[in-house]
Amino acid sequence: MKRLVIAVGCILLASPALAQSVGEKTGINSALGVVPTTADFVKEVAISDMFELESSKLAEQKGNAQEKSFAQQMVTDHTKTSNDLKGMVNSGKVKAELPMAVDSSHQSKLDKLKDQSGKDFSSNFDSYQVSAHKDAVSLFERYAKGGDNSELKDWAGKTLPALKHHLDMAQELGKAPSVGQSSK
Rank of each mutant, 00 (worst) to 15 (best):
G118L: 08
G157Y: 11
G146C: 12
S82I: 00
V130S: 04
M100H: 13
S150P: 15
A101K: 11
Y143S: 06
D148V: 03
D103E: 13
F121S: 04
V137I: 11
F121N: 06
V137Q: 08
K95F: 02
M100E: 15
Q107L: 08
S108P: 00
V130Y: 06
D148N: 15
D126A: 13
D154C: 02
P99F: 08
N149I: 07
K153R: 15
V94H: 08
S123W: 02
F125N: 04
Q129T: 03
T81V: 15
T79V: 01
K158E: 11
S117G: 12
S123Q: 13
A96R: 06
L152Q: 08
Q129G: 07
S138Y: 04
A156R: 13
Y143E: 06
A156C: 10
S122P: 01
K80C: 02
S108V: 11
K95C: 00
L139W: 08
K145R: 15
F125Q: 07
D148R: 07
F125K: 06
K134G: 02
L98F: 05
Y128I: 01
A132R: 02
M100P: 00
S122C: 02
V102A: 09
K158P: 00
F121E: 05
Y128Q: 06
K86I: 04
V89Q: 09
G147F: 10
G157T: 09
E97K: 14
V75F: 05
E141T: 14
P99C: 08
A144N: 09
D120S: 13
A144F: 05
E141Q: 15
V75I: 15
K134S: 11
V130T: 10
G157I: 08
V75N: 11
H106Y: 10
D111R: 03
L110K: 04
V75D: 11
D84G: 01
G87Q: 13
S131A: 14
T81I: 14
L110N: 04
F125S: 04
F140C: 07
N149F: 08
F140Q: 08
S104F: 03
Q107W: 02
K119V: 09
F140A: 07
K158W: 01
S104H: 05
D115L: 09
V130P: 05
N90I: 00
H133W: 09
L152C: 04
N149Q: 11
E97H: 11
V75H: 06
H106D: 10
H78K: 12
S91C: 06
K145Y: 03
N90Y: 08
S150Q: 13
N149Y: 09
S108C: 01
A132W: 01
S108E: 14
